[in-house]
Amino acid sequence: MKIKTVAQCTLDEVLKAWNKGFEGYFIEINMTAEMFLQRLVGEGLSPEHSIVVFDQEEPIAIVMNGFRTIDGKKTAWNGGTGISPAYRGKGVSRLLMEETLAIYQRENVELGTLEAIKENQVAIALYEKYGYVIANQLLFLSGEYEAKVTPTAALRMATIRPEQLAHLSFYRENVPWQCSWQSVKQGEARVFYKDNNEPLGYMLYKTLWNECGEVERILLYQMAVLEESNVELITQFLASITTDKVHLMTVNFLASNPATSYLLKHGLKVTTEQVQMTKQL
């Protein structure tokens, strides 16, 4: 077997490694070339530091990696590890992990991160073997929601670009990779204040519109209430987008986030559970 970087492979080879690698997975992630390239750019993945394993000329496994500075630490994200079904349980995962961690060492990474489906105990055990620990429980929620409230003048809202969140003193930078402003640059951000300019919270999201020009779906990437006692203000936050019934979906919300409890209480259901794992390097 030999290892190449994604940058050294053809797009067809990378796609084959990815799509075969996630075949029969808990959630199949079959990608077209366009989808893969959008993800590569949108989530800041590095072709030079991501790898494909070959058996002769056949691409059989892949790991996608990205790097960012988060809370002052150089952080790596494993954005997907896949092994072709015929090669699972044959030592390929060890090869992938050892090469990936060697890349992290060369790049002076301080913290490694990844997510795994909660039910995927085989993968979780593998990561634990290489020093990763479970740091957070993550939830995808989905359901219909209607903000039955009239926006109040006592609540001031500022609409900003996602990248401006990083310059707010109260912004919490350490969130799952796909929920960071860097991964949601095409989204929208809103910050909420009391009428005396005291910050109350913020959200990062995307809206999908129907052919009638109405908000049909809201994808929530971050929803932060700075004081847990203000959690009911989430109704006001969401009403600032629409007061019509709308489909809400959260992406990798921390189970410990008060906003998660609020949304579950107001009718959303858990669709997928993941664990966030980290490794100090």
Rank of each mutant, 00 (worst) to 15 (best):
N108F: 09
F192C: 04
K16I: 12
L15T: 09
F140P: 00
Q182N: 10
L165R: 07
Y221C: 01
T242A: 02
E211W: 07
V215C: 13
Q137M: 01
V275P: 07
A189G: 05
L139T: 01
E211L: 13
I134G: 00
Q56K: 14
V149Q: 04
V175Y: 09
R106N: 12
Y193V: 02
A125G: 12
H49A: 08
A86K: 14
S183M: 04
I62P: 07
K20C: 10
V191G: 05
G21Q: 01
R88H: 05
F67W: 08
P258Y: 02
W209M: 11
I83E: 01
L219W: 09
Q274E: 13
V184E: 02
V231T: 15
N108M: 12
R88Q: 14
L220W: 09
M31Y: 11
K148P: 00
A166S: 10
K206M: 05
A33M: 01
T243K: 06
G72T: 04
G80T: 03
T5V: 08
I3Q: 13
I3A: 15
I70L: 12
Q274M: 14
Q164M: 10
K269A: 12
Y25Q: 03
R68T: 02
A255T: 06
L45E: 04
L219G: 08
Q182I: 03
T243M: 04
S240W: 01
D195C: 04
L114C: 06
M203F: 14
W181T: 03
K90C: 06
L204D: 04
D12S: 14
L37W: 03
V275T: 02
F170P: 06
K90L: 14
S46V: 03
L111R: 15
W209T: 11
V191A: 11
S84M: 09
I160M: 07
W181D: 04
A76I: 02
N196I: 04
Y145C: 01
T260M: 08
E107H: 12
E146F: 00
E98P: 10
E28Y: 05
Q236R: 08
G82R: 05
F170V: 04
W209S: 03
Q164E: 15
W177H: 10
L95C: 10
M249F: 05
A239H: 04
R106P: 04
L11Y: 02
I234R: 13
Y145H: 03
N210V: 02
E98F: 07
Q280M: 10
M157C: 14
L138D: 12
E43K: 12
K148A: 09
A76P: 07
V109C: 07
T100M: 14
L96Q: 02
K194V: 00
L11F: 03
L111N: 10
L233P: 11
F22Y: 11
Y104I: 06
N65F: 10
D195S: 13
G131R: 01
I60F: 05
G187V: 06
L233S: 11
F170W: 13
I27R: 14
T278F: 08
T271A: 07
F192Y: 15
E198V: 07
R39M: 10
K185A: 08
V53F: 06
